Computed example of a mutant assay.
Amino acid sequence: MLKSTELSNKFEKITKNLKLANKFNFLLMLVFLGSIIVGGFIFSNLLTQKAQEEITNQANSLLQSMNSVRDYTTDEIIPLFENKLQNSTEFIPQTVASFSARKVFDNIRKNERYKDFVYKEATLEPTNVIDKADDFERQIINQFSSNPANTEQSGFRNLPSGKAYYIARRLNFDNPTCLQCHSTPDKAPKSQLAIYGDKNGFGWQLDKTIFAQIIYVPADRILQRANHSWWLVMTIEIGIFAIIILVINLLLRRAVIKPIIRISKLAQAVSTGKASSDFEQKSNDEIGVLAASFNRMKSSLEIAMRLISQKNQ
């Protein structure tokens, strides 16, 4: 209550010497600025949320596609080469789920729309160095490993190509047949060693979190589009408010300011005995009531003046 009174007093001091139209414009500007700030903040949050939902939906759709490729490879491709894989005499990269998923995603990236998207099954000790986790991804894998309940992470990250939104999901090493390629170099197929060497991708243990499935979706364009929409809406809102203020000012000047100015001038003339015409009452609103009140006051004043004149005579 005290703060409200203080604000009221400050407002009165600021507007004390302003004319009625200026006071009204001052109030309109305060309302206008408040509306712009509050509306801009709310709309910015809504646009950011919508942009993030769009990015998340894109990421989830691509992850679902990659998981479908992985499942197809595991369920349909591997059984076709089961004998060769058991003999361990030949290494077939196409039977590796992560290899198939990466190849399919590389084909997706040939589309201009997806060229900046990145799919990676980041691994602590990968067979193919292209899958090696960087420091950021290694941290995610370690968090997955230390917290079994944590199966997914998401957020924003700066990449050389720009700001990206990522979704990372835990992938456990739980397929015993994979140990023939990832336990020790002497058990791995010679064709695998010929392709990838004997230094990488070994020492894996079952039921350990050693890699994470990560999709990176470029966010700059989507966020820029949201920012452009925000500026467009704010510009339209400012234009609408400017038109409203202009129209209100014109109506205010015509319906309030001009009648009050006429009443004020006539009242000043009557007070000095220089006017005999009545105050114009063109409406029944507050201005009309004011004019009628001045007319009654003028009549009372004229009667009083005549009585005084007659008494003096």
Results as ranks from 00 to 15, higher is better:
N9L: 15
A51C: 06
L301N: 14
I37T: 10
Q192L: 15
G203D: 06
M66L: 11
S264M: 08
N172A: 15
S88D: 03
I308M: 14
Q143M: 08
K84R: 13
L193E: 02
S145E: 13
L85T: 05
C181S: 09
N87H: 11
Q64H: 09
Q224E: 13
N284K: 14
Q143I: 07
E90V: 12
L246S: 11
N284F: 11
I36Y: 08
I308T: 13
I36W: 07
S299D: 15
E54Q: 13
Y114G: 08
N172D: 15
S65I: 05
S154P: 00
F81S: 13
P126E: 00
I261S: 06
D207H: 13
I287A: 02
R70G: 12
F294Y: 04
E6I: 15
V270E: 08
C181Y: 04
I238L: 06
D285K: 10
L27K: 08
V129M: 13
A59T: 09
R254P: 10
D278V: 09
Q86T: 14
T184A: 08
D220V: 09
E302S: 14
L251P: 10
A101F: 01
S68H: 08
Q143F: 05
R306S: 10
T177F: 06
L7V: 10
P176F: 03
T15P: 09
S309P: 00
N158Y: 05
A188D: 03
G288F: 04
A21N: 07
A97L: 01
N25T: 03
E286Q: 13
L232W: 07
A133T: 10
F99W: 13
S154Y: 06
K115W: 07
